[in-house]
């Protein structure tokens, strides 16, 4: 049985296969409308979510399947102190596949150790978010036509940004990708990730504090929110929250075919005036999320053969 806990759980070939399937689903939606008939997806969300939960649910519905679950820890037995192991054993009796989001890092891995159904990590604290990675890769593939030979800038909270960690791991496996890491010193990519992904594999990366100096080089700019919920100290959050705000003025030096991505939700790190710029791809990214998750569900259930 397959799970998706870490983006590295899938080979490059498997990822390419899922992306190709997602693109086919986009073009032939009717063909896939009953693929998951009689199957149930459990969405176990211990932490708030709009896009991820709704896109998983919409994905399963579009495949002809059904959905059950909870959208906050307070509306599940977790509020009574039930362990993840016991919850997932229970859910395994009712559903065919589960997507789990949890504020604590490693919760989906723990769930997968006790589960008899495939588990998808739908975000675990500041750690990983592999289904968002498939979404991001699909968006890049559709926008740029390739996943190699790119310079990608990650900007904002790179320390607790789980989507950043997962996408860095995934993109590093493609040829000739340059990484530009833009963050305040307090929110830099964790050392273990730099060591594992860049240093051990001799992959080029640069760390800068200012967005302006690197803007002209970028093919992709991946913006992130400074996440209030990841800080134990509110003063630190307030000090760092407005570190980067992308506006039209900052984009003046950017390439004409730059693709601006953001996993959303945004607070103020991208001015709404940027939304109408043809380089803004974050709502296209939202659309890709549903199709990437449809392909992922099919893959994990073995229905993509």
């Amino acid at each position: 049985m397959k799970h998706l806990i870490d983006p590295m759980d899938m080979t490059v070939e498997e990822i390419d296969h899922i992306l190709a399937l997602a693109i086919d689903i986009m073009a032939n939606r009717e063909k896939y409308s009953e693929v998951c008939k009689g199957k149930k997806l459990a969405t176990l969300f211990y932490e708030p979510s709009t896009r991820t939960r709704l896109s998983f649910e919409a994905a399963m519905m579009e495949l002809g399947g059904n959905v059950l679950g909870f959208s906050s820890a307070n509306s599940s037995s977790a509020a009574k102190g039930e362990s993840i192991a016991d919850t997932i054993r229970t859910v395994s009796c009712y559903a065919d596949i589960a997507a789990i989001r949890h504020p604590k890092e490693g919760a989906p891995l723990l769930a997968s150790m006790h589960s008899s159904i495939p588990i998808i990590n739908a975000g675990d604290g500041g750690h990983n978010h592999p289904s968002q990675t498939l979404t991001d890769l699909l968006t890049i593939k559709r926008t740029k036509g390739r996943l190699d030979n790119l310079t990608i800038g990650f900007c904002g909270d790179l320390k607790f940004g789980r989507t950043v960690h997962s996408l860095i791991k995934a993109m590093a496996r493609y040829e000739n990708v340059n990484f530009v890491l833009i963050s305040p010193p307090e929110l830099q990519v964790p050392e273990y990730l730099k060591e594992d992904v860049f240093i051990k594999k001799n992959i080029p990366y640069t760390e800068v504090v200012s967005m302006d100096e690197v803007m002209p080089q970028l093919d992709i700019l991946y913006m992130t929110r400074v996440q209030k919920e990841r800080f134990f100290n509110e003063a630190d959050y307030i000090r760092l929250k407005d570190s980067y705000i992308l506006d039209l003025e900052k984009l003046e030096t950017a390439k004409n075919d730059l693709a601006i991505l953001h996993p959303l939700p945004r607070v103020n790190e991208i001015s709404v005036k940027v939304d109408d710029d043809p380089r803004a791809c974050y709502f296209k990214q939202v659309e890709c999320g549903k199709f990437a998750r449809m392909a992922l569900i099919m893959n994990l259930l073995g229905l993509d053969k």
């Binding site: 362990s83 949890h102 604590k104 890092e105 134990f232």
Partner: peptide, 11 residues
């Protein structure tokens, strides 16, 4: 403190 081991008993 952000790890699941900090809250889940007996793992």
């Amino acid at each position: 403190p952000r790890c699941i081991t900090s809250v889940e008993q007996e793992i």
